[in-house]
Design a protein around this nucleic acid. Structure first.
Length: 492
RNA sequence: GAGCCAGUAGCUCAGUCGGUAGAGCAUCGGACUUUUAAUCCGGUGGCCGAGGGUUCGAGUCCCUCCUGGCUCACCA
């Protein structure tokens, strides 16, 4: 604790005085509370002041002092615990001179245990009529101002603990995140899926196209990648005989940061044997609308001023129809390689000219259509050459049985009927290796697993952070990740 | 990686044409027994993100760098 500023110094000195002269214990851990703030409020909020006068029960509460209004001989504070915020009334006559003097030495931010009876003050606010208190943890750093709160986003991210103390809406967002993930788990569990864990450290970074983080294992003297996706391991489990598996965990991608991208982010991937991508569309719209209802109590949510209707069923569009009808790409351009190249160049899109038609079709869709897909929509029928792990469509082998889910202009989920033909899979891997992005090595063990036989299946990945963003109306992914990645640095 | 914007007291912010660094809250001292951003009186508090330059003089103008935000690029 170098660079101690004056305010910290004052608090340290004050604490020393309290311990030396006022009998305050040094960081004690013997106080036990018996009542949460929310329970206290629930028990007494509807009672009249007269009814509360009759209640002699002493409740032991604890929490952090958030505001103080002290007078000569009586004072009010607000304190908060994990469940809520409550007013407490300290009176000199009740507490005695010494205890009241100790009370007046408290600072905003201190954590105290306090006990007393319920009371309603003259203005009708339910409060604790304090009979005694104990300083449990001295707070040495001053908290941000009560009125404007903490606005500096750098401090909010670097010192999230401060943000959580002073910003109820931030605390609420993260509580909602927890509820969403919990609801997701129980939805999956109740549909017969088992939760599994697969390697975060992999020798081949497969299952997606992204740059991986590299690390090293000393004892084995072996380079390892942090996973970019769990996909290939989860499908090995289908080979192994599990028919419904899911994993909610972190992926790591060594790419740029933005309001929608954090280098580590949370993904749920799940795989279901004897199902195809149309089954997953039905499943997904029910899952997400159910979770929205459970978490927020409604299926029509507002995201950044846009009304998003999550009620099933959701619209379904082929990539081609969406690009043409929503994105306004001319029909002949979409279906013709030279015209597509010319069109992309006209729009100053960053293309080399070596792309396949499929790659250009996807690029055209992303350029013209994506951001217009506000209401939930499944985009289907992706080109095979941009989907190396997806099953080909029976009628048209240049397309795959795949969908992506878009909500509020963002990709939320990606799913497909799984390719379980080991020979086709090998061929697609070989094609993928020719491209400059993508895995550096062919995953022979995955091919071998397919050679043992993977049941027909469909699988899906859902970006949990992005889903949480929509359900909590958060503009940036950093608002739904407790500790987003920042440059190494100190808040001065 | 590129462009734009920002960084001044613990927090939130002013700071004009380049001329002695300010406010509110917090904090410290005093008054005050039902307050709600309590009120009233008085005080303390600054490496103006860092470094360099121009100038008699720089928070202010110029350059470099650091950190953050937004947009773009990258990114199934």
């Amino acid at each position: 604790m170098e660079d101690i500023n004056r305010l910290v110094r004052q608090r340290i000195d004050k604490y020393e005085t309290m311990k030396r002269e006022m009998g305050v214990a040094h960081f004690p851990n013997t106080y036990r509370k018996d009542t949460d703030v929310s329970d206290f409020i629930e028990s007494y909020l509807s009672k009249s002041p007269e009814e509360l006068m009759e209640i002699r029960k002493i409740h032991h509460l604890a929490g952090r002092v958030m505001a103080m209004r002290t007078f000569g001989k009586a004072s009010f504070i607000h304190f908060q615990d994990a469940s809520g915020r409550l007013q407490a009334f300290f009176e000199k006559n009740t507490l005695g001179d010494d205890v009241y003097a100790l009370f007046k030495k408290l600072d905003i931010g201190d954590i105290i245990g306090l006990w007393g009876t319920p009371i309603k003050t003259r203005t009708g606010e339910l409060s604790v009529y304090v009979q005694g208190f104990e300083l449990l943890t001295k707070s040495f750093q001053p908290l941000p101002e009560k009125w404007h709160g903490l606005k500096d986003v750098e401090i909010r991210y670097r010192q999230r603990y401060v943000d959580l103390i002073v910003s109820p809406e931030v605390r609420q967002t993260f509580l909602t995140r927890t509820k969403i993930i919990s609801a997701l788990r129980s939805y999956m569990d109740s549909h017969g899926f088992i939760e599994v864990e697969t390697p975060m450290m992999q020798t081949i970074a497969g299952g997606a196209t992204a740059k991986p983080f590299l690390t090293h294992h000393n004892a084995l003297d072996m380079d390892l990648y942090l996973r970019i996706a769990p996909e290939l391991y989860l499908k090995r489990l289908l080979v192994g005989g599990f028919e419904r598996v899911y994993e909610i965990n972190r992926n790591f991608r060594n790419e740029g940061l933005s309001t929608r991208h954090n280098p580590e982010f949370t993904m749920m991937e799940f795989y279901q044997a004897y199902a195809d991508y149309t089954d997953l569309m039905n499943y997904t719209e029910d899952m997400i609308s159910t979770i929205a209802r459970q978490v927020s109590g409604k299926e029509v949510v507002t995201y950044q001023g846009m009304e998003i209707d999550l009620r099933a069923p959701w619209k379904r569009y082929t990539l081609r129809d969406a690009a043409i009808e929503v994105g306004g790409v001319p029909r002949d351009v979409f279906d013709d390689l030279p015209k597509a190249v010319a069109y992309c160049k006209d729009r100053e899109m960053d293309i080399t000219g070596d792309e396949s038609l499929g790659e250009l079709q996807l690029a055209l869709f992303e350029e013209t259509t994506e951001e217009k897909l506000i209401q939930p929509v499944f985009i289907t029928s992706y080109p095979t050459d941009v989907s190396p792990l997806s099953r080909r469509n029976m009628e048209n082998p240049s397309l795959v049985d795949r969908f992506e889910l878009y909500i509020a202009g963002r990709e939320i989920a990606n799913a497909f009927s799984e390719l379980n033909d080991p020979f086709d899979q090998r061929q697609r891997f070989v094609e993928q290796l020719k491209k400059k992005e993508g895995p550096s090595e062919l995953d022979e063990d995955y091919i071998r697993a397919l050679e043992y036989g993977m049941p027909p299946a469909a699988g899906e990945g859902i970006g949990i952070d992005r889903l949480v963003m929509i359900l909590t109306d958060s503009p940036s992914i950093r608002d739904v990740i407790l500790f987003p990645l920042l440059r190494k640095g100190e808040v001065s």
